[in-house]
Design a binder for these strands. Structure first.
Lengths: 223, 223
DNA sequence: GGATGTATAATTGTATACAATTATACAAGA
DNA sequence: TCTTGTATAATTGTATACAATTATACATCC
């Protein structure tokens, strides 16, 4: 884990992201069950304990670590079952999001989505998985925003790190990327046509597909 | 807001709960839009700024306040639409929870639920709304736990303060309390019979009823 | 009078010191 | 050998000091 250089962001934010990335990337010292001491993290990152403490508290709220009083923080693992559960939950909530977004999405937002899809096509032709992953994540975020529901955005935000872990697992899969692109187009069309039911259905299919694909990745990898 | 006395809990936890309650109770100084300074809170509660800071960060993650860099924390309001949205989300997720709980609930857990319902009957006969509210909350928590899904528990936990605000609004309503009791029995029966579909359906009905009731309370109160 | 710049105050961000608690090592006794 | 007690170390919990940033008030200039 590299030391934190100067930046316009607050140290606390940077520390949070540094630790979050270390955990999600599967860094050895941040494997599930590993103990994270404030002293270690603060010397490692070159900051004092205060921002580290706050970052750990935030990570606890996100569910990535569990801090016990006077005993420190331990990294919480995300099991395959957890990820499957998350997908089941996402199916339900994102269907709602799509339905609401179809009612509330603006022309400007639709334009942004179209632009996003155009860039997906571009990076797909270049086989750039990392960019595709980010664009996929961004596309869904656009739907959340268009739903105009603060609680819904909130919920989906708190799922974020789980889904990003899943996304990293399911990263390199061109066939899936192609399907995802088509599914994104379908969702866009439904939203543009203000068809809530169709949008919800498309989202459900999209996430179910992603879930099915991830399941094969997981079972292939585990034994 | 009363000063914090000595207790086995950490100051940070107590500070968090003190501020959370103040906001949910609708304390004047904690009304939506009000600015909360660390100095004010720390002198008010008789503790230093450190635990106050951590509590505010936690409250931000829960969505009750928004902290801006170098500018402090402002209380975020929960609108009626927010609450309606929450119920729509809860319907979806708690249906999942019930389905999973029907598969995984143990005899011990069923016994605890039965005991909970018995106490609901007791406090209903005594017209004790506060106890009923807590028991209702507890009953749902038992279902979450029986679902054996950490992500699901996590999600529902992050909705907690929203739902508690809604619950406080819908507090004094005996007819609703009676219906809720019957609906809880129905859910219990479905879980005891390991009937996932029936459990999910009962939960959906239960929450839809609560939502409908709350809607009338809200529209009555607003003009 | 209104805009603008500057000094001051208020507030948060970070670092550090100390207190409280818990884990660990090791010795003494049964 | 196993248990138990105690001293020490390690770690977190809290308080406080200082730095950085932003808001406010007021004077100055147009």
């Amino acid at each position: 884990m590299k030391k934190i250089a100067q930046s316009h962001n607050s140290l606390q934010t940077q520390v949070f992201k540094a630790i979050e990335n270390a955990i999600l990337d599967g860094d050895g010292a941040f494997a599930p069950g590993k103990n994270l001491t404030e002293a270690m993290l603060s010397t490692e990152l070159g900051v004092s304990r205060t921002p580290v403490r706050e970052a750990l508290r935030q990570l606890e709220q996100e569910g990535l670590v569990r801090v016990e009083t006077h005993r420190g923080a331990v990294v919480v693992g995300i099991s395959e079952k957890d990820i499957c559960d998350i997908y089941a939950i996402r199916v339900q909530i994102e269907a709602l999001a799509a339905r609401w977004a179809a009612q509330n999405v603006t022309e400007d937002e639709l334009a942004v989505m179209q632009e996003n899809i155009a860039m997906q096509e571009f990076y797909f032709s270049r086989s750039d998985c990392y960019q595709l992953r980010d664009l996929d994540s961004n596309f869904h975020t656009l739907i959340y925003a268009a739903s105009r529901s603060r609680p819904l955005n909130f919920m989906l935000g708190s799922l974020h790190h789980y889904t990003s872990k899943a996304r990293r697992l399911a990263l390199v899969d061109f066939h899936r990327a192609q399907c995802a692109l088509a599914e994104h187009r379908e969702i866009y069309e439904a939203l543009a046509g203000r068809d809530g039911e169709k949008a919800a259905l498309s989202v459900v299919r999209h996430i179910e597909q992603a879930r099915a694909r991830l399941a094969t990745v997981l079972t292939d990898a585990s034994p």
